[in-house]
Design a binder for these strands. Structure first.
Lengths: 408, 408
DNA sequence: CAATACAGTTAGAATACTTGACAATACTAC
DNA sequence: GTAGTATTGTCAAGTATTCTAACTGTATTG
């Protein structure tokens, strides 16, 4: 009689189902029918109809085209409604900065990428990120208000609750800096902060080489080396957010000195920096035998130079790449035995070299890991290329934006 | 008019809640009140009452004692009703065989343990297991029908669907042998087959050192070396069931020959077999300097002999143990960087040596792994001792038995 | 063109939750 | 002691969500 509560008895059930429906729709870019949803989620068609009506009403979902011909009434395929907002994916790398502007169905609208130096510290770097964000919006003729959420990737271990990196090996000055709240204040929208390798895994899982894989391992070989782990389709961060920080596992007991102070770290043997260093050394020692010696000054040689020289047949460059692949293979063998992933995707700048880099990895990894674990394992290059991480950031931003719109 | 369906609309909701309630009760041996359950599960007290009534009716749960005094009506604590069935946990080790008989509230009723040799192949070994099972039942004055379910642990990678081990490094003749269905036929009850290290993790998580830890890593150092990984309280098996098979990751590139054919494997450096081998070698090289030389014949020296000698102050034995710990620490450092667990529990026969073995592990692990990941990490010995695995097997068997009784 | 197959919607029933009220029980303050 | 308060556990009423079953719409097939 005096009841004025309008709260449903348990909205969690409906919300949980709505969430499953929404996720299945957004990660099936080719479209799904209501009947498909019902079958895959184990719900009745009637329930799906009801949920879809909710989603149609808030214009989160739309009917796209007719489904395939099956011998019955043709289905209407559903997809995320692209209009109604935009999100940004930011990839803060050690030596580059990339931004992606995408609509709600994850289609890239605009893109910017520039060289960068993460060592200059958070204030300067984030100011630069802010500049680029605003330029991106100008180019797309949008305002900040049009951006529903932003995903950000950084090359260090992220602690979600803190919205910061903790104890990053290659981000001097960033330790405990409140990246998330800083950007939230600048842009006045929700920010998802993640490790770059984690996001690479998410990106490749959602739209790249690892689509739908249950247990996916993404290895980022850029300036540093890191791994992102997806277990049951979810980012696995570990107890303190530093799962997958493989850059500084010891590969050779008394190997070359690493920037972290230890010796024989993976990063000191197979990272972009290490490849460049070895190339410089090779040029100085026997410059005339390699095309790399044509680069002036010697100190400006980068891992990408080594990669292109290797592709052009330079034997010295090829050997450097092969050796790096070998060392990475040792580390990957460990990962295989420990994690036993269904698929390994190699991404990051150095990985774009292709098979020249992948082959030694495959060989070295399969020699040293358990037969049963390697047999059906695919090791491939990232299909999103340099966009893996930023697309992962877009996915995370979309998660926020879509859930908000669906009021979940 | 013609409706005769009595099916509930969505029993999944009730079942899912019932399952949560049941799990919370069984893993809280000290008892929980209805109000506690409501708070921890986010359900109303009324809903809990209804679910508990279901469970009381089938005599799965009973009211035990009164709860603590809080200044209000005293609560009645709930616990699993111990009567109504028994389960068995079987630990098939490389060199030992252990069986545990427990009631439904996981209290051990009877126990048998004997030396064993897994190398004699599945037929002979499983016949021995069957013998012991029947003897266990005789001692407890029970019949096979009284056993609701059996959990079995084996020292190799288990593929759940197949109910068999696939590509086991130390179980010659067992590859693809249908262990699960074989035992199911013998005993006519459901069998849960798992890897021994996985079960060790489960056992310690449920009733041992790792109670309630979200991400738990259990390392079994027995005849061989293996790891069991619990992620979010669930066994993580990886894509093909061989996650955590760390016995044959390469620690020293051109190290000592391992039984698997490779060189420098962890197992060849830190396993029980390796420890025994080194002790024999030490006795032959400089026998008079160590108490181990009193053991005759030299070839019968086991890792346990080395352990007790070390405890008694024998320097040679201590050095062997310390070095093994060092190598294990290297592997654990890798695991920490990759998995970043909240806690590491060291179990298995060798681990019972205690701090003499744990200290070098801790030192070596923390030297080589990421600061942020080690800071709050506890590395401890298994509190269930040699029962870790068989208690884990009991837990798995109980999962089957309890869910069956609750018709879940 | 009827039969069949599949997609999507609607109506009615059943369920399992919620809220709010109440009884039972124990502590606390006067 | 006795009233007041806090907490537990149960009951009754209300409602959302689901399911089943039947129905409509659309396409293929013989």
């Amino acid at each position: 009689m005096f009841q004025l509560n309008g709260l449903p008895p348990d909205p969690r059930i409906r919300n949980s189902n709505k969430l499953s429906v929404l996720n299945l729709i957004r990660f099936t870019p080719e479209g799904v029918s209501r009947a498909d949803l019902a079958r895959q989620l184990g719900l009745s068609r009637a329930a799906i109809t009801s949920i879809i009506n909710d989603l149609l009403e808030v214009e989160l979902v739309r009917e796209t085209i007719n489904g395939p011909v099956t011998g019955g009434r043709r289905s209407k395929l559903l997809g995320i409604h692209p209009e109604g907002g935009y999100v940004t994916g930011v990839d803060i790398g050690a030596t580059h900065l990339g931004l992606l502007l995408a609509n709600l169905s994850a289609q890239v609208v605009h893109e910017i990428e520039i060289p960068f130096d993460v060592c200059r510290g958070p204030e300067i770097c984030l100011a630069k990120v802010d500049d680029l964000m605003r330029e991106l919006l100008v180019r797309a003729d949008l305002k900040l208000d049009d951006v529903s959420a932003v995903g950000v990737g950084v090359p260090g271990p992220v602690v979600e609750q803190a919205g910061a990196v903790i104890g990053p090996p290659i981000m001097p000055g960033w330790d405990h800096f409140p990246i998330q709240s800083h950007l939230q204040n600048l842009w006045n929208c929700p920010i998802a902060l993640n490790n770059d390798a984690e996001l690479g895994a998410v990106g490749e899982w959602a739209y790249g080489a690892g689509r739908g894989e249950r247990h996916l391992l993404y290895i980022k070989v850029g300036y540093g080396v890191g791994a992102g782990l997806l277990i049951d389709g979810q980012i696995y961060r570990g107890a303190t957010g530093s799962a997958g920080e493989i850059g500084h596992i010891t590969i050779i007991d008394r190997g070359p000195l690493c920037t972290c102070g230890n010796r024989g770290c993976l990063e000191a043997l197979a990272g972009g920096r290490a490849i460049a260093e070895q190339a410089k050394h090779a040029v100085r020692a026997s410059g005339h035998r390699t095309q790399l010696s044509s680069i002036e000054p010697v100190d400006s040689i980068s891992s990408l130079d080594v990669a292109s020289a290797a592709r052009l047949g330079d034997l010295v460059a090829q050997e450097i790449i092969t050796e790096a692949g070998n060392y990475l293979g040792i580390a990957i063998a460990n990962l295989i035995n420990i994690v036993n992933p269904g698929m390994i995707v190699i991404g990051g700048g150095v990985a774009q070299i292709g098979d020249l880099f992948l082959e030694p990895i495959r060989r070295s990894a399969s020699e040293r890991s358990l037969e049963a674990a390697v047999q059906r394992l695919r090791i491939t290059a990232a299909t999103l290329g340099r966009r893996s991480t930023s697309m992962g950031a877009v996915v995370q931003a979309l998660t926020i934006a879509l859930y908000e719109k669906a009021s979940l």
